[in-house]
Amino acid sequence: MKKILLALPLAFAIGSTQAADIVDTAKAAGNFNTLITAVQAAGLVDTLKGPGPFTVFAPTDAAFAKIPKAKLDALLKDKAALAKVLTYHVVPGAVMAADVKPGMVRTVEGSSLKVSAPAGKVMVDKANVVKTDIAADNGVIHVIDSVIMPN
Rank of each mutant, 00 (worst) to 15 (best):
K2A: 14
K3A: 15
I4L: 14
L5R: 13
L6K: 13
A11H: 10
A11S: 13
A11E: 06
F12I: 12
S16I: 11
S16G: 14
T17K: 13
D21Y: 04
D21Q: 07
V23R: 09
D24Y: 01
A26F: 08
K27G: 04
K27W: 06
A28K: 13
A28D: 13
A29P: 07
A29D: 12
N31T: 10
F32Q: 05
T34H: 10
T34V: 09
T34L: 08
L35V: 06
L35D: 03
L35W: 04
T37F: 11
T37R: 12
V39G: 08
Q40P: 05
Q40W: 06
A41M: 00
A42S: 01
G43C: 01
G43D: 00
G43V: 02
G43P: 00
D46R: 02
T47H: 02
L48H: 02
K49S: 07
K49N: 06
G50Q: 03
G50L: 02
G50W: 01
G50N: 02
G52K: 02
G52F: 02
F54K: 05
V56P: 01
V56Q: 10
A58H: 05
P59Q: 06
T60C: 09
T60G: 07
T60D: 09
A62V: 00
A65L: 01
A65D: 12
K66L: 11
K66I: 01
I67R: 07
K69P: 07
A70H: 01
A70W: 03
A70Y: 00
K71C: 01
K71M: 11
L72N: 01
A74Y: 00
L76W: 01
L76K: 09
D78Y: 08
D78I: 00
A80N: 09
A81W: 03
A81I: 04
A83H: 07
V85P: 00
L86K: 10
T87Y: 05
Y88W: 09
H89A: 06
V90M: 10
V91R: 13
P92I: 03
A94C: 04
A94N: 06
V95I: 15
V95K: 11
V95L: 12
M96W: 12
A97Y: 05
A98G: 14
D99Q: 13
D99K: 14
D99H: 09
V100I: 13
P102D: 08
P102S: 09
P102F: 08
M104R: 15
V105Q: 14
V105I: 13
V105L: 15
R106K: 15
V108Q: 12
E109R: 08
E109F: 05
G110I: 01
S111A: 14
S111H: 11
S112G: 12
S112N: 14
K114P: 03
A117P: 01
P118I: 04
P118K: 11
G120I: 03
V122G: 11
M123Y: 11
M123V: 09
M123E: 13
V124Q: 10
D125F: 07
A127F: 05
A127C: 04
D133T: 01
D133V: 06
D133M: 03
D133I: 00
I134S: 13
I134R: 12
A135I: 13
N138H: 04
G139D: 00
V140T: 09
I141V: 11
I141Y: 02
I141N: 05
V143H: 08
I144L: 09
I144F: 05
D145N: 07
S146Q: 14
V147K: 06
I148H: 10
M149C: 06
N151F: 11
N151S: 15
